[in-house]
Design a binder for these strands. Structure first.
Lengths: 235, 235
DNA sequence: AAATGACCAAATAGTCTCATCTAGTCAGAC
DNA sequence: GTCTGACTAGATGAGACTATTTGGTCATTT
């Protein structure tokens, strides 16, 4: 019995290729913006045929979604790796990392140069972290452990506004009035800390809660990314 | 010797008419947006002929500038009337008043529905207050009097980011996640207070500094408005 | 002098046509 | 089974032209 046809590809190689394609897409989108980046460009740049891209993703938008999800996973991993012990450290890190990742920054502030027609998309980057109940649970734990005050309340809005404000403001300032990214991250951490933390030295329990929360977020993000990468197993 | 020609108009009546025209413009711009609001519309609505409008302002944009300046004067007067004693009260008031004045809010957050093609205009509403050195002087006085801390520094950026974040965030939230305007103003005051104030009961000197600053701002704003209203004395 | 509104040039919006581009498919090559 | 790239339908854009709108002017009226 002679085998016919090409043997099945190594799944690992497929994943690697998917990443190569996303690398190309990221590069092109950052350079030309979403609207001006064509699938042909991405195919050429990543050295595969156009059809191959459609073996991975059903549509152009699916590819973009995967790209963003990958960015998100990497961002969360970076944050997690820095082992923040408090909410303020968590979001200081969040901002620092985000400012270094132009695609994420673009989705947060709605940069139409980069996002093109997708600008009016779900602007979830901040709200996504917070929504889903997990964040509320996390905050509740911190309050319980005395790391976070009850006042002034509405912590989610406070954090969201501070983060958004600090990340978006530089866009509407003269070049020379802008602070360095590192400094901005520092100020975010300081502001959030003063806005809602008790100031007590952070307990091991609070640190645990923060890391648990991040682990959960990383986990979720990885799952979503996995869904976006394995086109073949799509429903 | 017989008088000829129409007697000069009462300047007070002229001013009143200018305000009527601005009232009409404000109404129309809020309803239809800047792009869709024509000079003819404004003339009709305010009950004057088109030419009359051009007796007051040289161009459409001049009229719009006057409108914004009037809004700014009124806003500053409102803030001043509430006699804020601290920076946090000052900006809490600022946000409360601004949220109630859709035109100012639009210029701050760059609402293209309202501003139309002017969206990319100087986004100064926040920065304007702070720029010009007067604000820095004010802050210096507060620090001197022990009302404001030296840390974390970059107070202007901190305040600008907080204000902008809290005012702009609601736009990208689901309706039901938004807080009432009053609550937002409260949170801004609280956040700014904790971010940079010492917490000491505010001294008379600090209050004086705040009111002086506001008086100066009102003064400047009134002058600019006056320039915008008296077309005839234009250079 | 002060106010008006008919008037005009310039911008803007709308229409139609033709050319180009591009997301997604698929028959066939490996 | 895996991958390719020629192919297509529909979108997008350029161009040319017309119709409409509108900011701004100014001769005339009060």
């Amino acid at each position: 019995m002679v085998k016919v046809g090409r043997p099945p590809q190594d799944p690992a190689r497929q994943l690697e290729r998917a990443h190569r394609i996303l690398d190309a897409a990221a590069e092109l989108i950052l350079r030309w913006g979403y609207d001006k980046t064509t699938i042909d460009d991405v195919a050429k740049r990543s050295g595969v045929a156009k059809g191959t891209i459609y073996l991975h993703w059903k549509t152009r938008d699916d590819l973009f979604a995967a790209l963003l999800r990958r960015e998100r996973v990497r961002m969360l991993e970076d944050i997690r790796a820095s082992e923040p012990a408090t909410v303020s450290e968590l979001f200081g890190r969040f901002v620092a990392v985000m400012l270094r990742r132009p695609l994420l920054r673009a989705t947060l502030v709605g940069d139409s140069e980069v996002l093109g027609k997708l600008t009016r998309m779900k602007r979830q980057s901040v709200t996504a972290l917070e929504l889903g109940g997990a964040f509320d649970t996390y905050l509740a734990r911190l309050i319980e452990h005395g790391a976070v005050r009850k006042e002034p309340g509405d912590h989610t809005t406070v954090i969201g506004s501070i983060v958004y404000g600090f990340v978006a403001l530089p866009d509407m300032l003269r070049e020379e009035a802008r602070l360095p990214d590192e400094r901005i991250a520092e100020l975010v951490a300081d502001t959030i800390g003063r806005a809602m933390e008790t100031g007590r030295a952070s307990s091991a329990a609070a640190t645990r809660a923060t890391l648990d929360f991040l682990d959960a977020m990383v986990e979720i993000a990885r799952h979503k990314l996995a869904d976006s990468m394995g086109a073949k197993e799509r429903v």
